[in-house]
Amino acid sequence: MVAGGCAAAQRPDVERVAVEFAAGVPEERCGLLAPAVVAALDAQDGCESGVAQVPAASADVLGTEVWGDDAQVRLPGDTLFLTRTTTGWKVTAAGCRPAGDGPYVCAVEAG
Score class of each variant (00 low, 15 high):
M1V: 11
A3K: 14
A3V: 12
G4V: 13
A7V: 01
A8H: 08
R11P: 02
D13H: 15
D13K: 13
D13Y: 12
D13F: 12
R16Y: 06
R16T: 14
V17Y: 09
A18Y: 04
E20S: 13
A23G: 13
G24N: 01
V25S: 13
P26H: 05
E27Q: 14
E27G: 09
E27P: 08
R29P: 02
G31W: 03
L32F: 04
A34N: 08
A34R: 11
A34E: 14
A36E: 15
A36H: 11
V38L: 04
V38T: 11
V38N: 01
V38A: 07
L41H: 01
D42I: 04
D45L: 10
C47S: 01
E48T: 10
S49H: 01
S49D: 14
G50Q: 04
G50C: 06
V54K: 11
A56V: 12
A57G: 06
A57T: 03
S58G: 11
S58E: 12
A59Q: 13
V61F: 08
L62F: 01
T64P: 00
T64G: 07
E65L: 07
W67S: 14
G68R: 13
Q72D: 02
Q72V: 06
R74M: 04
L75N: 06
P76M: 07
P76S: 04
D78S: 00
T79H: 08
T79W: 08
L80V: 15
L80W: 07
L80E: 15
F81G: 00
T83L: 00
T83W: 03
R84G: 02
T85Q: 11
T85L: 01
T86E: 15
T86Q: 14
T87L: 04
G88I: 05
G88E: 05
W89T: 04
K90G: 05
A93M: 01
A93F: 09
A94Q: 07
A94Y: 10
C96H: 11
C96M: 09
